[in-house]
Amino acid sequence: MYDFDYHRPTTIADAVALLAQAEDGRPLAGGQSLIPTLKQRLAKRSDLVDLSAITELRGIRDDGGTLVIGAMTRHAEVAASDLVRSAIPALAATAESVGDAQVRNLGTLGGSIANNDPSADYPAALVGLGATIVTDRRSIAAEDFFTGLFETALAADELVVSVRFPRPDRAAYQKFPNPASRYAVVGVFVAKTGNAVRVAVTGAGAVVFRHSAMEAALTNSFTPAALEPIETPADDFNGDIHASQDYRAHLVKVMAKRAVAALQ
C-alpha cells in the first residue's frame, strides 16, 4: 500500500473541508472495498478521511413513515435492526446478504453506494425502493445517483449523509451470489406500492437499472408467470469468467420470478 495522510474528523463540515483541501482525497467509510484496492496498489490516495467518528452519520430512525438510515450505519446494524425488519424486511435481508459476517460488521450503507460496484447489493434496493440519497448539500433520487461503472453523481468532496427509504407494501430481493465473493452475479429487487411495481437489477450491467418491461408486465399481473414471456437483451451486459452475458440475462428472469414468487 502506498502511504497517505489519515484524518478522523468529528463533523461533516470538517470532513468536507479536508476532502476539498486534499490533492487526491477519499472518504474512508467501512473500508471493505477501498482498503483491498489500496492494498493491491490498484489505487493510490493522498489522503483518507475516516468518517467513523462523525456521530451524525450513524443510526436508523423513522421519519413519519420514511425509514432514514445514516451513511455510516454498518450492514450488520441494518440487518439486525428491529425497525428495518418491521418497516422494510427486504432491506434487512439485502443487508444480511452482503459479503460475510466480518465484512458486514465494518461495511457501511454509504460506502457501498458511493463505491457503486456493478455487483453490489444495495444499489438494487435503493433503486427498487425509490430511495433518496441525502448528501451534505442536496438530495438525489436513487435513479439519478448511480451514473455508471463505479461512478455516482457525487462530487469529489461530497458526502452521503443518509438514505431515505419510502415504505413499499411488499418487497423482495433475490440474488445469485458468486460462491467465493458473495457479490451478486445478478440480483433483482422487486417492490410493490399500491399498483406501482419497481424492478431493479444489479450485477448484470455496468450499473444498476430499472427493468421497464418487467415492471409493465407485473403491473398488469403480479405473478411469476407474467415474467415468462419477457426477454432481457444481453448486449450491454457484463460477461466474465463467472457468467456470460447470456447467462446473466437468463438469471435476471430467474431471480425476478423468485422475488415475485416470494411475495405471493
Binding site: L28, G31, D50, S52, A76, A101, Q102, V103, L106, S181
Partner: peptide, 25 residues
C-alpha cells in the same frame, strides 16, 4: 483479498478482518 478469514480478531466485541482495517482506525 479479504476472503479467507485467517486474520479475524474482535474490535470492540465484533469480529472483523484485521487485514481489511488500518491500525489507525
Amino acid at each position: 483479498t479479504s476472503q479467507c478469514g485467517a486474520c479475524v480478531v474482535h474490535v470492540d466485541g465484533r469480529s472483523v478482518k484485521s487485514c481489511t482495517m488500518l491500525a489507525v482506525q
